[in-house]
Design a binder for these strands. Structure first.
Length: 305
RNA sequence: AGGUCUGUAGCUCAAUUGGUAGAGUAGUGGUCUCCAAAACCAUUGGUUGGGGGUUCGAGUCCCUCCAGGCCUG
């Protein structure tokens, strides 16, 4: 049974708070994070250490090979399995990937899996004829989607076309159909004053490097290709440049910090507008004391036996 | 001290022969149904270092002060 979710921007302190809450509620944690799924990326994706997990079981964390692709659908399937196999266990979702949480609650359109070769083909067409061509093509077959997407939105233009080519049906015809949702559960959004959040991001970036992030990256590119999914996380491509001697570290670090701040802001937009979460503002110095409002919130939804 | 160059949005820089200030980026807001730490969209900022002068009109010309760089001593 899922008792709720803890969301928040990167570096806000979800991990620590999540463990504290899970302990109080006797729950196990399911990571709701599209990066922390990967093994061998413990530092780069900020996976908590054994000590930081404080004896709480963490699921869907560090379990997938860095070369393996993952998806929202895979996440939903994995969570369903986990919950079904452990009907008496309480689970707390902790993470910052808004799409994953939304799909879990509302479900997804019943689309078949797309042949990977199809995307490769579309990519090569894009190389040859440009994104504008693909956009016109999509708008021609699926005017609803075509008019809705911006001409620069490469990812969704390709998505629309691959759905059409694979199924013969329009992507827009699938939109609005959602299946397999688990229904809603209580969501707590942990936030901090913006300046404090940004400061934490900057500090964490430094500490990740100190913990051996560069060595981790070196190990990954030695054993896998540079374009494997796990290396798409923030920072890795900057560190690859550092390892190749193309960019000095003291230039890469501010760039990584900047990228991470931008990402955090996007997350905030999502939580604000999409998640219908209960808002909790915490601030430095009061971290542990601040747990009680969260507990009260989650407990209020639990059925009294 | 003398000479010389520079000073435009938080940052990096634009602005034709003087015509009344624009980009990128950051910041802020937004979009989001199988790559989501992704992929996009929108938008706020400037008494052009201060003061004075010439001119119908000055970021652009002149004077002066301030700040900084470089060269000489």
């Amino acid at each position: 049974m899922i008792i709720g979710a803890l969301v928040g921007a990167t570096a806000v302190g979800k991990t620590r708070m999540g463990v504290a809450i899970a302990r109080e509620l006797n729950a196990e944690i399911i990571s709701t994070d599209s990066r922390q799924i990967y093994a061998e990326t413990a530092i780069g994706s900020s996976q908590p250490s054994k000590e930081d997990r404080g004896g709480i079981v963490h699921h869907l964390m560090g379990f997938l090979s860095p070369a393996q692709a993952y998806s929202v659908a895979a996440f939903c399937r994995d969570v369903h399995d986990l919950v079904q196999e452990n009907p008496d266990q309480a689970f707390l979702l902790v993470g910052g990937t808004g799409l994953y949480l939304q799909a879990l609650m509302l479900g997804l359109s019943p689309l078949p899996e797309i042949e990977p070769s199809l995307r490769v083909r579309l990519e090569s067409i894009r190389q040859r004829r440009g994104l504008a061509f693909l956009h016109r093509w999509l708008a021609h077959v699926d005017p609803v989607i075509g008019s809705r997407l911006s001409p620069g939105d490469s990812q969704r233009i390709l998505r629309g076309l691959e759905v059409y080519l694979q199924t013969g049906k329009l992507w827009s015809s699938f939109q609005g159909m959602r299946q397999g949702g688990m229904g809603s559960f209580p969501v707590a959004w942990m936030d901090r004053p913006r300046e404090e959040l940004y400061r934490r991001i900057d500090l964490r970036t430094h500490s990740m490097v100190r913990m051996g992030w560069i060595e981790e990256t070196e190990h990954l590119i030695k054993n896998y290709a540079q374009d494997v999914p796990a290396l798409q996380g923030l920072g890795y491509h900057h560190l690859i440049q550092v390892l190749e001697g193309k960019v000095p570290l003291d230039q890469a670090i501010p760039e990584i910090q900047q990228e991470t701040r931008n990402y955090a802001k996007r997350q905030l937009t999502w939580f604000r507008n999409k998640s219908s979460a209960q808002y909790f503002l915490v601030s430095e110095g009061a971290e542990i004391a601040e747990i009680s409002p969260f507990l009260t919130f989650f407990k209020s939804f639990r059925k009294i036996p």
